[in-house]
Design a protein around this nucleic acid. Structure first.
Lengths: 147, 147
DNA sequence: ACTGGATGAAACTATATTAGTTACAGAGGG
DNA sequence: CCCTCTGTAACTAATATAGTTTCATCCAGT
């Protein structure tokens, strides 16, 4: 995962949660306008979210996307899980020297540490929902309109 | 930070902790052999670790590197802090649409969330030291020699 | 059926990031 | 003064990321 994909995914979901209040769907093009990027990029992220059953696509007239569940029932942990392509920390790019005791033993140890760190990350992310994100975002953007 | 820099930094420190037991220093070339990469790359990481006072360099005859402190007094949190160039999650690459309430308000909210996540990460990483890492690595590598 | 607006995915380009390499001045103990 | 290693810049190569174009596919509405 590029480290911006998670941000884009959250932006998409918050934007969808906004229109969900009016029971409407939204197109990748509309989302792209909000994110300020191109629709294909958005669809690539949407495709990942769809595979994790966080969003649903509709075809035909009035086609577009909507949340698969209520926004207060989607946690950031699930979103991260859906988007994640690579772990937070990568191992060595090339295999370390197996004749060195460190080179030989370090990878499994780090793998274990890193998976532990990701678990901590998930429990933190699980405490926030898309509804929380939408709420705070709207609060902030309406405040800033007056500044 | 590339997501492998943290791994390389930990490899370096574990390797240095190993020679620290014999009160010796180690050169970037020796470390590079263990990591299986080139000395300049190692020196770039060492330079970051030095700025955070985790390692010390010696010049002249018998030159090389050593830990600035006992390995049981260096936590992975400090190492991560020393290495980190970018936050875990990046924001939008290009500024989101300021005419959209989501685009306008989302970045500060995410910034706050992300800094919270990093704090959780640090408390997790703070529980492990370089000495722990070295110990587990040696245990594992000696086990695997018999497999 | 046919239409129209949207998706899915592949292919390609452009840009940015990351790592590898070369080169050379600077440090300092012997 | 010598020797070995560091510090850093400059360059190249490889990879990752995002933007763009294109076109087949989907399906509600007519």
């Amino acid at each position: 995962m590029s480290n911006s994909h998670f941000t884009i995914a959250l932006h998409i979901l918050a934007r969808m949660a906004l229109v969900a209040e009016k029971n409407k769907v939204i197109t990748s093009k509309e989302i792209a306008t909000s994110v300020n990027t191109n629709p294909v990029f958005i669809r690539r992220i949407l495709s990942l979210l769809e595979k994790s059953n966080l969003v649903v696509v509709q075809y035909g007239t009035g086609s577009g996307w909507k949340l698969a569940r209520n926004p207060d029932n989607i946690t950031l942990s699930e979103v991260y899980q859906a988007i994640k392509q690579k772990p937070i920390f990568g191992l060595h790019r090339s295999i370390p020297n197996q004749n060195c005791p460190i080179g030989k033993g370090i990878q499994p140890v780090l793998k274990y540490y890193y998976s532990d760190v990701e678990k901590a990350l998930h429990s933190k992310l699980a405490k926030t929902t898309v509804a929380d994100l939408l709420g705070e975002t709207l609060t902030l953007s309406s405040q800033e309109l007056h500044s």
